Computed example of a mutant assay.
Amino acid sequence: MRMIVEDVMTSKVVSVTAATPFKDIAQALITDDISAVPVVDDDRHVIGMVSEADLLRKEEFREQFHREDYRPPLRARLRHPKGRQKAAGDTAAALMTTPPIVISAAASVVSAARIMQARDVRRLAVVDGNGCLVGIVSRRDLVKVFLRDDDKIAAVVRDDVLGRALWLDTSDVRVEVH
């Protein structure tokens, strides 16, 4: 059994709309103990993501508005050239990172991990075939794969690896997991 995103994702997702104010986003992150929220339109299509890092840009660039000689660290300027615009943002529309990085619930957890690594993100919005939000998958969710019990791992080796991939008769195969 190949592990897919749907097996490990969080399906009860806190989301916001483009018009959601800064303080309401911050409150949602704190109240729900999460590090980001997807931004959705009226049809639940994901249009962006607002993370703690996006909110912290307000503080990061605050001195710049008071003292002209302040320059954020080079890393921040190179990684987030829109930082100054986001720092002035008061709604999810101004703060969100776009385009959103999304994944299908049917995608493999390996694909999710690769996308997160390649795009340097900590979470992906999970969408259905119409692009509507159905969940969110984080790096922490992907770590759940390592917590499978031994019987499930043995079944994967026997049924998927030996049976489906190698087309072997597994009726007499015994798999032990340590």
Rank of each mutant, 00 (worst) to 15 (best):
R44W: 15
A28R: 03
D69Q: 03
V109N: 06
Y70E: 06
R140L: 06
A105H: 14
E59G: 07
V14W: 00
S108F: 14
R123C: 08
L124W: 00
A53Q: 13
R79W: 13
V102C: 11
R119G: 04
A28L: 09
Q117Y: 14
L124R: 00
A118Y: 13
T91L: 00
R122P: 00
D54R: 04
I47C: 03
A105L: 10
Q64P: 00
D41W: 07
R75T: 11
R139K: 15
V143I: 14
K12H: 10
D141E: 12
Q117W: 10
D141L: 06
K12F: 02
L124A: 01
G83T: 06
V14K: 00
R62D: 14
G89W: 00
H45T: 04
G89S: 08
A112M: 10
L56T: 07
T31L: 02
M96G: 09
D43Q: 14
A19S: 10
R123V: 04
R71K: 13
A94N: 09
R71D: 12
V102T: 14
D41K: 02
K144A: 11
A93F: 13
D41Y: 09
V145F: 15
A92T: 12
D42K: 12
V121Q: 02
K58N: 04
G89V: 01
D120F: 04
I101P: 01
P81R: 05
M96Q: 11
A93H: 14
Y70W: 13
R71H: 15
F22T: 01
R77Y: 15
R79F: 14
I101T: 09
R84F: 12
A88V: 05
P99T: 15
I136A: 07
D24A: 07
A28D: 09
L124Y: 01
M49R: 01
G135C: 05
P73T: 10
R122M: 03
R123D: 02
R148T: 11
S108L: 12
I30R: 01
R71I: 15
A87R: 00
H45D: 05
T98W: 15
L74G: 07
D120K: 08
R139I: 12
L29S: 03
Q85D: 09
F146Q: 08
A106S: 12
D141P: 01
D33K: 06
V109L: 08
H66P: 00
A26L: 09
D120W: 04
A106W: 12
K144M: 14
T31Y: 04
